[in-house]
């Protein structure tokens, strides 16, 4: 390795340490016996996980977040796939408007959207409701789902649907039996990303939370702001595992998608 390359590698690995350091520091603390957060952790215990899983408030917020995230994933997958399909198969004229609607909610800072939704939902009686969260999270997760689905849809030869129709399939059946199965891995990974985005979403959750129903990120925010208990590292471990799981699932789905596509004469 020449000196220049050595320098580059040293620099990059230093940056990677910077990137990983906070996570590497917080994770072991979940197993520490002390009630205050200190590094290196002392002792070894799973009691903080126990505390998390037995505390009704943490559990309630976790399930609330899961419910919202699942509904957001389904909403974005269905609504996003429908719209993307129409766009790719004929509504090119609407492309610009579609993109503006799609990108708008993530270009505008989350704080702006959160405040706007807070005001609107207060008046509409949607504050703190599942529907309110699902609506809000769906618009910010939508681009991720749509781009994942669009990438798959544009690579599916439209002639496949022609072929299905020439075989006697209706347009809907051509989509259901041919196109959908081919793009399904992408639709599912798009839904997975929407799930994670919703599940982790802190800003809108901060403003929309009712007095009773708080999402997990909102509970975490309060805990970090007030006393930062070792339950946070325990949750960090769980969330990191979830992220790894989703990334692995996405990789598996990508592999499946590639296999699905492989057939077109190369």
């Amino acid at each position: 390795m020449n000196p220049r390359s050595l320098l580059l590698h040293a620099y990059v690995y230093a940056v990677l340490v910077f990137i990983l350091l906070p996570i590497l520091v917080i994770l072991p603390m979940a197993f520490s016996e002390t009630t205050y957060l200190t590094f290196p952790p002392q002792g070894l215990t799973l009691s903080w996980f126990g505390d998390f899983f037995t505390d009704s408030r943490w559990m309630a917020s976790t399930w609330f977040s899961v419910k919202i995230a699942v509904l957001t994933a389904i909403t974005t997958a269905v609504v996003g796939t429908m719209a993307t399909y129409a766009l790719v198969r004929g509504a090119n004229a609407m492309g610009t408007l579609f993109q503006a609607f799609l990108i708008g909610p993530i270009v505008v800072p989350h704080i702006a959207l959160a405040v706007a939704l807070y005001l609107f939902f207060q008046n509409a009686g949607l504050s703190g409701t599942t529907l309110g969260y699902v609506l809000a999270h769906s618009v910010i997760a939508m681009p991720f789902t749509v781009f994942t689905v669009a990438a798959a849809l544009t690579s599916v030869d439209p002639a496949l649907e022609d072929a299905a129709m020439s075989c006697g399939a209706s347009r809907f059946n051509a989509f259901r039996l041919v196109t959908l199965p081919i793009i399904l891995p992408n639709v599912i990974s798009g839904a997975l990303f929407a799930f994670i985005i919703s599940f982790d979403e802190p800003v809108i959750a901060f403003f929309l939370a009712g007095i009773r129903d708080k999402t997990l990120p909102r509970m975490m925010f309060d805990d970090i702001e007030q006393n930062l208990t070792p339950i946070i590292p325990a949750i960090a471990v769980l969330l990191t595992l979830l992220s790894i799981l989703v990334l692995l699932a996405a990789a598996v789905l990508k592999h499946m998608a590639d296999r699905n596509k492989g057939a077109e004469g190369q």
Partner: peptide
């Protein structure tokens, strides 16, 4: 009608 397309268009899945 039976139809054969330019690029085979077999359903890959």
């Amino acid at each position: 009608i039976g139809m054969v397309f330019q690029h085979y268009t077999l359903f890959p899945h």
